[in-house]
Amino acid sequence: MVTAPEGHPSQDAPPAIAVRGLGKSFDGTVAVNGVSFDVPVGSFFGVVGPNGAGKTTTLSMVTGLLRPDAGNVWINGVDMWADSLQAKKLLGVLADGVRLFDRLSGRQLVTYAGLLRGMDRETVAERTDDLLRALDLADAGDKLVVDYSAGMTKKIALASAMIHAPRTLILDEPFEAVDPVSAANIRSILHDYVTHGGTVVVSSHVMDLVQRMCSHVAVMARGNLLALGTVDEVRQGGSLEDRFVDLVGGRSSGEGLSWLHTS
């Protein structure tokens, strides 16, 4: 059962993200159906759901990339739509499917992201070197992003999202197409970030990954919020994957494929 927060978030100790009644439709089809949730400061918050669940649409509205039809979003108490510039300053965003300036080198792209945030050139240069080194991109820093692999592109986009040391990172499928060693390095970086006061919101299809990484989770399907809470509360003593399948449904037996049997 979902226990969603109600009303305007407290201004005394606002959550990292507060979502109230968020809704969006496309051509009469409901993509997000009035969802409400809080992301606690210092949490590692997972948003999970099958394809078409509304995860990306929800995160696009939370980050100000897409205007909602209904509802409100606050980032550390700042209204995303009443004061978008201030709210966006608090966020680092890795959006799924958004084109990068891929005719820049990796180093140029991260540098551009830092300068766009109003940072001084010396700090940008130092942090760019640190991020390229931490993400195993130092040798590819002067290579054009258009020539990067899918995994390298994901990592340089993450570096661009982190350059200004935001209070909250919102990452849509950050591990997709990333090799296991790089994924382990990214997880280590993100856990260190959370340990030192940052907040991470991550969407993923990989339940085992979410169960191991996240402190909190929201389960979505067909635009609705089906479960919300700590990972232990949501999985109810079982695995998160089994709980997810129970909530979402749709498991099939493979019956009728006897022609695949070779013995």
Rank of each mutant, 00 (worst) to 15 (best):
M1V: 13
V2C: 12
H8S: 12
H8L: 13
A13D: 15
P14G: 05
V19R: 02
R20M: 08
R20G: 03
L22P: 12
F26M: 11
G28A: 11
T29Q: 14
V32G: 07
N33G: 13
G34K: 12
V35I: 15
S36A: 06
D38F: 05
P40I: 10
S43A: 13
F44T: 05
F45L: 07
F45I: 11
G46S: 09
V47I: 15
V48A: 06
G49P: 06
N51Y: 08
N51M: 10
G52H: 03
A53C: 04
K55G: 03
T57G: 12
S60K: 14
V62M: 06
V62Y: 00
T63F: 03
T63Y: 01
G64A: 06
L66R: 00
L66W: 00
D69P: 10
G71F: 14
V73H: 00
I75P: 03
V78W: 10
M80C: 12
W81Q: 07
A82G: 13
A82T: 07
D83P: 03
S84Q: 14
L85H: 08
K89N: 14
L90A: 11
L91P: 12
V98G: 00
R99Q: 12
R99S: 09
L100V: 13
F101T: 10
R103A: 13
G106P: 09
Q108E: 15
Q108A: 15
L109E: 01
V110W: 01
Y112S: 09
A113F: 04
G114D: 11
L115V: 09
M119D: 12
R127K: 13
T128N: 08
T128D: 07
D129A: 15
L131T: 04
L131Q: 05
A134D: 15
A134N: 11
D136T: 14
A138M: 03
A138F: 01
A138L: 08
D139A: 15
K143L: 13
V145I: 12
V146S: 15
D147R: 12
S149E: 02
A150Y: 06
K154N: 06
A157C: 06
A159T: 14
M162E: 07
M162G: 09
I163D: 04
H164P: 04
T168C: 09
L169D: 04
L169G: 04
I170T: 02
F175G: 01
A177F: 11
V181F: 08
S182C: 03
A184I: 03
I186A: 01
I189E: 08
L190A: 05
Y193M: 08
V194H: 06
G198H: 14
T199N: 10
V201N: 02
V202Q: 06
S203R: 09
H205G: 11
V210R: 01
M213D: 11
H216E: 13
A218L: 03
G223T: 10
N224V: 01
L225N: 03
L225G: 05
A227W: 00
G229D: 07
V231W: 00
V231A: 00
V231H: 00
V231M: 02
D232E: 14
E233G: 09
G237K: 06
G238E: 11
S239N: 05
S239A: 05
L240T: 06
D242L: 05
L247F: 01
V248A: 07
G250Q: 03
R251T: 07
R251I: 08
S252Q: 05
G256I: 10
L257H: 15
S258P: 04
W259I: 08
W259N: 07
L260S: 10
L260I: 11
H261W: 03
H261F: 05
